[in-house]
Design a protein around this nucleic acid. Structure first.
Lengths: 203, 203
DNA sequence: CTTGATGGTATCGAGTCGATACTAAATAAG
DNA sequence: CTTATTTAGTATCGACTCGATACCATCAAG
């Protein structure tokens, strides 16, 4: 792949996959940490938003827009938070339809406890400058390490990969089976970085 | 805020919020586009992974690890994909327990259709180089514009914000109500960028 | 031939989420 | 002053996610 015709070129597909993958990891981390307080990811997002919102924006309608939900979903989610004591409802004096949602002390305690998660803070240390993809790639690798996830790298970059001599096929050093060219560019759950030829991000 | 004592400094809290927010937007976009084919975000992720996985990794166990689910969830999700005709199950010849999941032609068609989403591709155009946070911030703003979302910016940076003379309080030019200092740094759903003092990312 | 690990499935309950229908309050139009 | 119409929010349904737990095969090791 050519680096770019443009200086600010962004590899969109790669960037998208990275963002999606990081999103998943953060979400599952959030599920774990939120679970300690009986909270779902969406509930945490709503709580975090309301903790930052001004008096024109601490309403179900705002949460709906901000999180990109339907108002039914938002309404439900907020009810759970009220039941659990992390939010308090107040009705507007001027407009009888409006509701204001205030984060309680308990709510703020939870937010302080879980945001951002420890694994993220550690993972940030290993991130360098450079193009967006590179930084995201660093971040992903660091997060995977933090959460003890397998890297799922590309077969060809694995330390078990044995390149075939011209004409003959490649081989996996772990299973000792032959690998077709096409297969060598796929993801493998047994992947381990070949630190010599394809260095994993530092730190 | 000081830029940093370190050259590679990353504002972790800000970066976390950006990633979370971008993650939400991509997820809801995914929900929309996937909905056209009757697919949930998680189902799409599983399908996309299997489309990239090699023959050691095209199993429920791999999907479980890769997406950070429990094996029950993964099993269910994969069943839906099989029912809908986007995956085909094959049992392993050597190991009777193992199952291989192959993406069907219909599955590949769906992936080509929805990944990455158009709004993401457009949003990428406006992203510059620079530190991770800056790029992510650009990306978020562009995505919000693409999806016609409100920016939910900080009150103080809004074109309706009127700074109070020393001693007197600030004011919102839209509601004409006074704003306390503390409130001027919160998020507002009516926010519109003041392009002179606080330029929104270009494009 | 047991024992135990591994790969998968089945089921339950709490929650998300879009869709739809609905209520009540505010606002606009006549 | 009524009568739409819009806006803010709730209620309910069905499909799905997800963790937890229990369970069933198959394989591998003693």
């Amino acid at each position: 792949m050519v680096f770019s015709r443009y200086y600010f070129f962004v590899d969109q597909r790669r960037t998208y996959e990275l963002l999606e993958r990081i999103g998943s990891l953060l979400r599952s981390e959030e599920r774990r940490s939120g679970g300690r307080h009986g909270l779902q990811p969406t509930q945490i997002h709503a709580l975090a938003f309301l903790d930052q919102a001004n008096r024109y924006s601490d309403s179900p309608a705002s949460v709906t827009e901000y999180l990109g939900l339907t108002k039914g979903t938002a309404s439900q989610t907020l009810q759970r938070l009220v039941e659990k004591g992390f939010l308090r409802q107040e009705s507007d004096r001027k407009d009888g339809r409006r509701v204001h949602l205030k984060v309680t002390a308990a709510g703020r305690r939870v937010l302080r406890d879980i945001r951002p998660p420890d694994s993220f803070e550690k993972a940030c240390q290993g991130v360098g400058t450079g193009p967006l993809e590179a930084s995201l790639s660093d971040l992903l690798t660091a997060l995977q390490r933090e959460q003890k996830q397998k890297p799922f790298g590309i077969c060809r970059t694995c330390r078990h990969f044995r390149r075939g001599a011209r004409g003959s096929s490649h081989q996996c050093g772990l299973t000792l089976e032959p690998l077709r060219e096409e297969e060598s560019s796929r993801l493998c759950r047994e992947h381990e970085w070949d630190t010599e030829r394809h260095p994993a991000p530092r730190r």
